[in-house]
Amino acid sequence: MRFPKLNLWDGPPGPPSLVLVLVATLLAAPPAITYRDGGFIATGKLSFAVSLHQPDAPALDGTLAHTSNETIFTPRYPPQPGATYRIDVTGQPPILIRVPDRAPRPPATLTAVYPSASVLPENQLKLYLHFSAPMSRSEAVRRIRLLRQNGESVSLPFLEIDEELWDPDARRLTLLFDPGRIKRGLLPRQEVGAALIPGERYTLVIDAAWPDAYGQPLAQGIRHEFTAGPADRTPVNPRTWRLTPTAKDLLIDFGEPLDSALAPRLIRVLDVPGQVVLEQNETRLRFTPHQPWKPGTYTLEVHPALEDLAGNRVNRPFDVDRFDRVTTIQDREPPTQIVFTVR
């Protein structure tokens, strides 16, 4: 008889020895065990143990259930696609079962890098990498390089942290430039200098081998270029923004690019639900109310945690001169409110 395809003998490679053939002939046919929907299934009533196929692996914890004609072992955790498990039935040689691979899916791509502007301040604080699909953790450090225009790698430009700053869906990674090399007067900046030098051209190189959450590499590597410009040490000041209500929207021109994650979250029109879109390299926000504007006055509210590209907040620069200045910052910084009129 032919055994089901997934059943493999855990014997030495090569043709079975005479002894094995004899034993196999003397014993009844080994039980047919298959894998289906997260469970290992045997025909009839049978007691068996499942473990990962590697030396000294313990039997997996799980539940054994009997139906009228099957025994189903469901491990405590879902089996890993593509991994091989060993089934031990008393008095039988072990059976190896390879769990099917995941259904193929299109490879992930890097869909955007923010800020999108081609010139960034030399004290740029964050980059956001957006991916089309969930990615694997614990890979970023070795998959990202920052090259100078002469092709040399910038040494340790980003803060390397085990946690990696992903969003809950693992599709957006926040990359922090090493703050020790941005802040003035700190040792790393004095030892090795700032990561970015004004006037220099840089290329952020994303390795195509970066695996997505399912272990597949990216569709392709990416090279994202930008130039470093002068430092920005000026706090965000919403009072200098230009507000232009149109028939359908409100356009808010910041006069500088703002943080692409914070601006849509921390700017709102009070009591008017609507959609926000950042435009023109994050220097403008377009607010579109769900219901058309009615003539009247409205209030734009800006949360104090809003940051520009260099981490300067509303009314607070990234580095503050003197602690006295810090202590005068109010405990609960109020939001900035700007009244505008729609005619």
Binding site: P168, P264, R265, I267, P273, E301
Partner: peptide, 19 residues
């Protein structure tokens, strides 16, 4: 975290890594 219009802006991407 400070959220202006969580309901309007879809699912927040903000997460605070406990270090």
């Amino acid at each position: 975290a400070p959220a202006a219009d969580a309901m309007e802006r879809g699912r927040s991407k903000r997460q605070e890594a406990i270090t």
